[in-house]
């Protein structure tokens, strides 16, 4: 599904290299987790995949289902099936959540040459998906993320993911700022989307999210590279003894 080869990324002003030869392969149907200490480049990876400005790729390649991702604009990446659940979802005053969701869904459909979704069908769909995430009508009517609590913002990200049905989902520290109940809701939302033709990349600091979203593979990222990969037990090891042991091991 997602193939990252020898990816080198620096800040656009050339001041600082962040990713230093990252390799990662996430096959369809799987859930991969990336863990790593602060500053290892996890969020940069998420942003670079989604196409945020401010970074320069100096080497390497990224492909999504065989398509070169790096040459696409962010909206084309989304239409190609990529979705990033933001660590800090953005507030957009004056744009209602409903208008946002419908505009996004129809923009993607249009880009893929599919017919736009009609108002009744859209309403039915959004109500159904929102209900599962405990998102009420008021939250749908309000401006995107404005005045939302931390938990509401994260649930809103998962609602967008559920509506857009992407093929490759990247979750950037979706567990940060969540209480146990909210985390369970978010995890349920993610698990409901698990499918043979869909893959997940879950970026997290903590093992606890991975109790709810069981990963197939766990990667440890340090200083812009994957330094170790393993099964779910790797996350437990991090939880118990921190990154120090692993760092020593790979040094």
């Amino acid at each position: 599904m997602l193939e990252i080869t020898n990816l080198h990324v620096e800040l656009e002003d050339g001041s600082k290299p962040i990713l230093k030869g990252l390799d990662l392969s996430v096959p369809a149907g799987s859930v991969h987790a990336i863990m790593g200490p602060n500053g290892s480049g996890k969020s940069t990876l998420a942003y670079v995949l989604a196409g945020r400005e401010g970074y320069r790729v100096t080497e390497g390649s990224v492909s999504l289902m065989g398509q070169d991702l790096l040459e696409l604009e962010p909206e084309a990446r989304a239409a190609a099936g990529l979705f990033l659940a933001f660590q800090y979802p953005v507030e957009i005053p004056g744009v209602s959540n409903m208008v946002f969701l419908r505009t996004a869904l129809n923009a993607q459909r249009k880009a893929r040459g599919e017919p736009e979704i009609g108002a009744p069908e859209f309403l039915r769909l959004v109500r159904e998906k929102a209900k599962a995430l405990n998102i009420d009508g008021d939250m749908l009517k309000r401006a995107v993320n404005v005045g939302f609590s931390g938990g509401e913002k994260k649930r809103n990200e998962i609602l967008q993911m559920a509506m857009l049905e992407p093929r490759m989902c990247i979750l950037d520290e979706t567990d940060s700022g969540l209480d146990v109940d909210a985390m369970r809701l978010v995890a349920q939302g993610v698990n409901a989307l698990r499918a043979p033709d869909r893959a997940f990349l879950v970026i997290t600091h903590y093992q606890r999210l991975l109790d709810h979203i069981r990963p197939d593979v766990v990667h440890i990222m340090v200083d812009g590279r994957i330094v170790k990969s393993g099964g779910p037990e790797l996350a437990l090891q991090v939880e118990q003894s921190g990154y120090a042991d692993i760092l020593r091991e790979v040094a």
């Binding site: 196409g51 990033l84 957009i92």
Partner: peptide, 29 residues
Amino acid sequence: DETALFYLTSRGIARNEAENLLILAFLDE
């Protein structure tokens, strides 16, 4: 707002359309 623009485009909304959405939102008050 470039951050808002990126958020909207990352959901598949073309840059022009996203910009228009933000302009209308700006004028809504």
